[in-house]
Simulated scan of single mutants.
Amino acid sequence: MNSAELQRVLNWLIDGAWSAQEPAEMIADFCERLVAAGLPLWRFGIFIRTLHPEIFGRNFIWRQGEDVEIGSVDFDVLDTPEFAQSPLRIVFEQSVEVRGRVDDPNSKRFPIVDDMRAEGATDYIAVPLPFLDGSTHATSWMTRQPGGFSDDDIAAIRAIIAPLARVSEIISLRRTAEMLLDTYVGNRAGARILGGQIRRGHNDTMQAAIWLSDLRGFTALSDRLPAEAVVTILNHYFDCQVTAIRGHGGEVLKFMGDGLLAVFPIDEYVGDAAHVCAGVLEAARESRASVEALAIPVGDAVERFRFGVALHVGNILYGNIGGGNRLDFTCIGPAVNLAARLEKITGRLGRTVVASEGFANVCRHDWHELGEFPIAGFSKAQRVYGLADETYAQVG
């Protein structure tokens, strides 16, 4: 391998691989530079473990002449026979290099060597990718060169690891921040925070459809069931809503015990209020069906559930609110307050879905007028609407 060309690749990495905008582009550029420098690379993989409640890691696979494949694996992979027999398991657990050659009898313990032989590959090496936080990630390098990688090739790969690890860690940290913000505050809020809206007073006014829901009988449920069972119930219950909300363009801003606050932004310049609200209503119908079908065994009994959701549309103040150095990215305003009051009416009326007059006027539907109700904090009584296909008897 040409040492001068290798140094150019190292300098490119040290400079931050600035010519590439996305990770997949960076990996493709990186591999093509190495091949041009004389490394007989046919396949390259980089495997980054993630800080995510469901995803164990992400992988990027480059093959000569093909686009980079991007994938992810969940934690179930740790219990599979394939992972148990993979060189990457040894890399993750022991932080050591693992080599497999088609002409080496000792390499037969790795099933990947048979796959290599079928694809015409001759040599494979998995190399740890250490991050500064002490975590170990992995790279894999494969060649079709007769006789496999030379000693100079292996030395070049080892020389590349340190700068590759620094660039990968920077990219990984950015993605970890995005995933954590997405997990805990929502995608749009996370993007705003990463974009610099981190000070108290950084707020925007936004028109949105508002969703505020609550689980019926949660206080009594919490009193008679073990805490672990209540947590399990809440997680399944929220799953029934979050999938529908996100599937129709909404963002969950907050979980409040058994309550859920979500918003569906409306682009006032496009004039898509009717379309957005129609999606909100469909999400409410889907959630209703999912909650009605939810049955969780607890001891000798099976728990069934009902919930209520209020739908409203209006302007909200969206941004950082809090005290000292503890802020919350949320939304406030009279529209949110009205949605919260309407949600309480769902229980009084034995309804699952209720809508404000404003929402019903935007989302033309077969609504059933439920009457006018005085709302605490509002000078005028509010007209409330329900779905015509709900025929529950009025409660209290």
Rank of each mutant, 00 (worst) to 15 (best):
L260W: 04
L260D: 02
L261Q: 03
V263K: 13
V263G: 12
V263W: 14
F264C: 08
I266T: 11
I266L: 10
I266R: 09
I266M: 11
I266H: 11
D267F: 04
D267S: 10
E268I: 14
E268D: 15
E268F: 05
Y269A: 13
Y269I: 10
Y269R: 14
V270N: 04
G271A: 09
D272I: 06
A273G: 11
A274R: 02
A274T: 03
H275Q: 12
V276R: 03
C277E: 03
C277K: 02
A278Y: 00
A278F: 00
G279Q: 02
G279C: 01
G279A: 04
V280Y: 09
V280L: 10
V280I: 07
L281D: 02
L281Q: 02
L281T: 01
L281K: 00
L281P: 01
A283G: 15
A283Y: 11
A284F: 08
E286N: 09
E286Q: 13
S287Y: 02
A289G: 00
A289D: 02
S290V: 00
S290N: 13
S290K: 11
S290D: 05
S290R: 12
V291A: 03
E292V: 01
A293N: 12
A293L: 06
L294E: 10
A295C: 09
V298A: 11
G299E: 05
G299T: 03
E303D: 06
E303G: 04
E303K: 05
E303P: 01
R304E: 07
F305H: 06
F307G: 06
F307I: 00
F307H: 06
V309Y: 09
V309F: 10
A310M: 01
L311A: 13
H312L: 02
H312K: 04
V313W: 02
L317G: 15
L317D: 15
L317W: 11
Y318R: 03
Y318T: 02
G319Q: 15
I321A: 15
I321E: 08
G323P: 00
N325G: 08
N325C: 06
N325F: 05
R326N: 13
R326F: 10
R326W: 07
L327Y: 14
L327C: 14
L327I: 15
D328Y: 14
D328N: 15
C331Y: 02
C331A: 12
I332D: 04
